[in-house]
Design a protein around this nucleic acid. Structure first.
Lengths: 136, 136
DNA sequence: GCCATTTCCTACTATTATGGTCAGCATACG
DNA sequence: CGTATGCTGACCATAATAGTAGGAAATGGC
């Protein structure tokens, strides 16, 4: 019962983009360095996110990625479902008489995922980094 | 993001035991037939359940298993955690700044699992089998 | 005592998902 | 033109899952 690194790294990637948002696009290389992730692997993760319209890319030298929507309008659910496919607690069309339980679980999980936006994650991460940066 | 068959078959097994509870112990063979599962595989699943004290066994001919506790006192959480180990949404000690999200998810899931007992599953399954059996 | 039944135990194996790596083309800035 | 970056598809190593296989030990019925 795990979130795969696909979903997790994908969120880290988007949070990083959201954090370093500015006029210029952000290169995957810089994200990979900051987050200590493999650039090649991030390339694979961002492809579906681009296709789904969460980020847009700028090719060529000095290119990179930027969020295509406000960070408060991208939910964790969007990202996880895009990267990991539909949430199947148990395989489709099993008939074990416990469908009601699986349905409850699914709802509970999706509720959390859909109540949390990228904006929330940015805030969350800043809090978790603790400490005040004001006087630096 | 799945419940493995370990947890799922384990629940089916216990629900079957709960349903066929009586004076005599219930053999795995009969459970395997009713639920269309492999007897050998069930053996592997019931071992930890026995060790954890949810069922007790009677060896030898005409032996089998029976619940060691009232079915209203065994929660789905007990069973799943026994069979699948601790619920780790993400690997231990990752530091991705999203710990708060993973914690929320974990809580949401465990809440559902711990509010549901074997008794609930028995009722649930009976309802799902639909139809009234009174006049048969 | 013997046989059938059933639990119990230890390996082994096949398949799948995960978590990547590798190689190379495509595009665009300077 | 050269370098930085995006983009794509193929490939691979490891671990987890989902079982199988084979038999030893216990126990009730005959």
């Amino acid at each position: 019962m795990k979130i795969s690194t696909k979903g997790r790294y994908g969120l880290m990637l988007l949070v990083d983009l959201a954090t370093h948002e500015g006029s210029a696009p952000v290169s995957l290389k810089s994200v990979a360095e900051r987050q200590s992730l493999s650039e090649h692997y991030l390339e694979q993760l961002i492809a579906p996110l681009r296709n789904a319209g969460f980020v847009r890319s700028v090719r060529g030298a000095y290119g990179g990625y930027m969020l295509a929507k406000p960070k408060s309008e991208i939910t964790v659910k969007d990202v996880i479902l895009t990267l990991e496919g539909p949430l199947t607690i148990v395989d489709e069309d099993v008939q074990d008489g416990l469908e009601e339980l699986w349905e409850k679980l699914k709802t509970a999980i999706l509720t959390v995922l859909e109540q949390t936006t990228l904006q929330d994650l940015v805030d969350m991460k800043q809090r978790s980094e603790g400490g005040y940066m004001y006087y630096i």
